[in-house]
Design a protein around this nucleic acid. Sequence first.
DNA 1: ATAGGGTTAG
Length: 666
Amino acid sequence: MISLPSFPSQQISEIQYPNFQEFSFDSSLLQKLHSCKSEKELKGIHSLIIKSSPSPQAQQFIYNKILSLCSSITPLIDLGYVHTLFTQLPNPNISLYNSLIRCFSGSRSKQSSLIILLFYHVLIEKGLIADNCTYPFVFKACAQLCDLRQGEMVHVHVIKNGFVLNLYVVNTLMSFYGSLGAVMDVRKVFDESPQWDLVSWTTVIQGYVKNGYWKEGVDMFLEMVEAGYTADEKLMVVVISACAKLGDLSLARKLHNYICDHRVKFDVFVGNALVDVYLKCGDTDSACKVFNKMPSKNVVSWNSMISGLTQKGDFKAALNMFRKMQDKGVKIDEFTLVAALNSCANLGTLELGKWIHAYLDRNRIEVDGFTGNALIDMYAKCGSIHAAVGVFDRMKLKDVYTYTTLIVGLAMHGEGGMALKLFPEMLDMGIQPDEVTFVGALTACTHAGLVEEGHKYFADMSRVHNIKPQMQHYGCMVDLLGRAGLISEAIRFVEDMPVEPDAFILGTLLGACRTHGEVELAESIMEQLATMEPDKDGPYILMSNIYASANKRKEALQLRKGMKRRKLRKAPGCSSIELDGAVYEFRKGTEYFPLSPAKGEECVSKINFCLQLELYILFQSLGVTSNMMVLSLGTSSSCLGKERNTILNHLQSGPANPFYPGPADL
DNA sequence: ATAGGGTTAG
């Protein structure tokens, strides 16, 4: 039972945290309150307290305790209950308001943020003054709601009440401006603050970096070092991520050295940032070294490796990582799958791509946004354009990437008409096309032979959509005109371009010359190309084909000699097939090997890569077509029966397939 | 009681 000495009420309001021993309070109740960990327990104790019918003074004290307890066990707590509790308090002071607000800051939803702002306005109306514990939550709520004006208003209150001297308040204020992209305001608050700590520097640097001012962020870091501060691991992560965006390898090495020299804690965040920066700067070896040295890895570490290798174009290494990650039992997430799908798309490993699709379905991961876009791309690039369309149709959240991916995919499959139907549909949905969408639309026009339509898209690009044509778009137009046989128009187009044609454009023209037998024109273009890119074999190959089809043997021979003189060799053709989830790659004149390492690593040497066409037919006759597809076929045709049988034996009885776990494994 | 961190596309 609680028995209180009776205080005059004015005195009570001055004592914020009375010593509970003065209440001769049943200490077991208070102890229970302290050790309480769940809402249920809390409510139980609450009812016990009500039953003990405390005096108003004791009630204020206890409710105060309960409320601060609530704010420490969020988000487990029922916010409605918290609010009811709060309304029981007769004259809540600012610290009680802070406790209340803290309860609502746990859920980080838009609704809770609105409620926090509401409480903030109520407390001001009641004549209370917010303090250093109120403002951080209020700024967080403004950031969550993307409400710049509201935040600016609170900023004024902060100035009026003198809280610009409080680092907690100033730092959250900067973080608020930074999250809304107001970089100048972040800097202004920083410059006007009379004192800084490491968090202030981190916040201002992050303000720059998050908004794309990578160079400024790095410069600010250097300024900080100059001013005598020492960075911690949290700041280093920000600076390293800026360095990754800049792609500056020598800076990356300097930052790595800084970490070692200053004994910055090498935690999983720092490790991940380093792995990422080395991969983005093209130094795979260093990335692997850091990755292997990391004391603890998480899903992000693996994702960084996989997506980094994918972006570098090392798709096989990426998929091997993906497999290794699963072997280690690391739980994969959407980031993993998007990166893996990207690799599948580029390698043409449809089976693995399908497996990932099934994985998404099985784990009830919504096929939307990033995952949906990656799936569409994978199916389109692996030749299953119908599956790509199927994914597209089921997606609820379509963005410019979704439309562009499918437009490009359809165009590449010769479905120019279907691709061009999507374009106006996209505009109707209120989605603005970007420069890549126009590359897709122009390619679609090329493949459908729609010259007029192409001109219209090209004109609309700058006129209606305010996108300046880039070299790629000029290239598309040259290709469009060239393939349609309008060579002279293509030449005129190149001459009228506001920029000098690059090797790609000239190569496109050369391709048009080949299709339409324009030998003399080809020769003059070839001359230009040979000076621009003396090391490329492509133009020579094209030109020799042009001579060959014009029956000009002598010229062709001379060209070959020229190639030899320049030590140019035709890059070997390359092709691959997928069988039961393993990719077999064929290179002309070399050996073939399965994509996956380990058991299947032994190579069968010197197999002509074009064998696969025959293999495909053979497999069809054997009735094993379902797991196999041919991605691209070579053009030469010499074939050795013995070697073919070797491959057949190898594929049928050989290394354990599939290398990737099938749907049944998970 | 209250502030700052890494990975995803066409």
